[in-house]
């Protein structure tokens, strides 16, 4: 599968896809998008890189083992929910520093979803890719 075309295309596509995934995550609260789609797109970017240059290259770029991303993401979402709990409100109640600003705890929660999804998808696919080789 690793033709020259794929490699070249990946070099340009990969950063675009990553940017697009962050964009989806950011705008998800108002327009179609969000942590799930964003995470899936980011994972696709890394999968593309792994297909073109091998999983070791993709793992190098990711820096952190994908399976580690799972607890990191879960913890992020948990922390986003705990904020309200500490303040005596029900667990996972959304908190905003100022009404109308997007940087509330729901966004943090969505970041956690994003990280978990990236971690899960890459854990599965990288492991299977390495199983084949």
């Amino acid at each position: 599968m690793t033709t020259l075309i794929v490699r070249t295309a990946t070099r340009y596509l990969m950063p675009l896809l990553l940017l697009f995934s962050l964009f989806l995550l950011w705008r998800g609260h108002h327009e179609p998008g969000g942590g799930f789609v964003g995470g899936l797109v980011a994972a696709t970017a890394f999968v593309l890189l792994a297909i073109a240059d091998g999983t070791s290259a993709a793992r190098r770029l990711l820096r952190i083992a994908p399976v580690r991303l799972v607890p990191v993401g879960l913890a992020t979402s948990l922390v986003a929910g705990l904020g309200a709990f500490v303040l005596g409100r029900p667990f996972l109640t959304g908190l905003w520093p100022e009404a109308g600003i997007a940087l509330g705890t729901p966004l943090l929660f969505d970041v956690g979803v994003y990280l978990t999804v990236v971690g899960v998808v890459l854990t599965i696919l990288f492991a299977l890719m390495e199983e084949g080789s």
Binding site: F36, L40, V117, V120, V121, I124, L128
Partner: peptide, 17 residues
């Protein structure tokens, strides 16, 4: 359905393995 789609992917992967 949105979460179900993502979970179905993970479950399919689990079943495959």
């Amino acid at each position: 359905v949105l979460t179900a789609i993502v979970i179905a992917f993970a479950v399919l992967a689990f079943a495959l393995v």
